[in-house]
Design a binder for these strands. Structure first.
Lengths: 208, 208
DNA sequence: TGACCCGCTAAGCAACCGCTCACCTCGCGG
DNA sequence: CCGCGAGGTGAGCGGTTGCTTAGCGGGTCA
């Protein structure tokens, strides 16, 4: 937030905070490899090769292969959480904020679907401590969405019999975008975001 | 369909068609292991161990570890497809059939979430030929749901601006149940199915 | 009874994995 | 001009992997 040019989520320049340069190149290579083949099917030689380095170079910047996944998961989740909270904290009715939250959250999962896939589907490869940390971040996501829905219900904007279940379904819908996006093609992240925002407003019974 | 006692989908007795007994035990063990740790993180020794056999016994019934995954994926997808098509082919309005399709499809993904997880998330571990076969099965799922929605729109029951996108979202929502189910706990497959059927009817703008 | 064969095991092979270590290169302060 | 530390490499170690092979026990049938 130091300059006015930075936009929320840094969607154009991810990993900008990772230094030095070689460490960032390795991390980007790992994201690509993990997203393509999965964590366990990816070798350290493959990661180093994509970054144009020898296999041993990886261990100068990261202690283990798991630390790479841990770093990716933490940064990725923090970016997604930031996107969500920015939308949730904006001004407007619950209807407007829920639509904006879904739109931007989905746009992130579609645009950064390679990062999102790693973050969402390789969680089990982490050790107990690292996994617990990531799960805690994820719970803050859930709480953010649930609060908007609860406010909408309290304000009479929404008609939701089961708030917890509906929150779960909304987040599930958004997250699963990372799985199928680009497999189908022909839709931009913006289009998917707009479609999903509309669908979610229908799910909570918001009047249009 | 030889006896009246068999129910659609065989939810109580899956893998009943797999013989001989040792082959079925290995397959069940593989499903558990793949669902817990993922395909690549599972060793053939682990699978054989769970089935109470030596590592070499696996290769009497299956040529490779990948053939195990292929068999699981094919049978699992066929079961899910059968559940969907049974609901889609029943009598009633498009609204009733869509609700029943979502209810039973979600119930299957929740109840058989260990199978579903393997089937949905380990697809990339298959070779090109096997993957193409599974993807074809999946397209029949998409078509089944899309047809119900199209019929509902034609009959004036639904209000859906983007049929393809909404179909994608509905299926995405159902499939992702396999990822989070049992992680949260406290909800039965029937309850999740009922909740999701309601949410999907809202998504397509069906009058209640 | 005894030859046969099917299902299974014990042992092990070649390849590959994550990771380490001894060594090299090169910009830079004194 | 030299020493030095940060960043990088080539080679390789111990362990594990998917899979193979030689052989064994115990039902089956002439």
């Amino acid at each position: 937030m130091s300059t006015a040019e930075e936009t929320a989520g840094d969607e154009a320049q991810p990993w900008g905070e990772v230094t030095p340069d070689a460490a960032r190149r390795l991390l980007v290579a790992a994201v690509e490899a993990f997203a393509e083949r999965g964590y366990h099917a990816t070798t350290t030689r493959d990661i180093a090769g994509r970054a144009g380095m020898s296999p041993a170079a990886l261990y100068i910047h990261y202690r283990t292969k798991e630390e790479l996944l841990h770093r990716i998961s933490r940064i990725g989740h923090e970016k997604a959480l930031e996107v969500l909270r920015t939308a949730a904290g904006s001004e407007g009715t619950a209807t407007e904020r829920l639509a904006e939250a879904v739109r931007s959250f989905v746009r992130w999962h579609a645009g950064q679907h390679t990062v999102a896939r790693v973050v969402q589907y390789e969680l089990d490869a982490l050790g107990p401590d690292a996994r617990a940390e990531i799960v805690a971040l994820r719970r803050r996501n859930d709480a953010t969405v649930r609060e908007i829905i609860e406010e909408g219900v309290a304000a009479g904007e929404f008609d939701v019999p089961d708030v917890r279940g509906t929150t779960l379904a909304v987040l599930s819908l958004c997250i699963d975008v990372a799985r199928w996006f680009n497999a189908a093609g022909a839709r931009t992240p913006d289009e998917v975001g707009a479609l999903y925002a509309d669908l979610v407003l229908r799910m909570v019974g918001a009047q249009k």
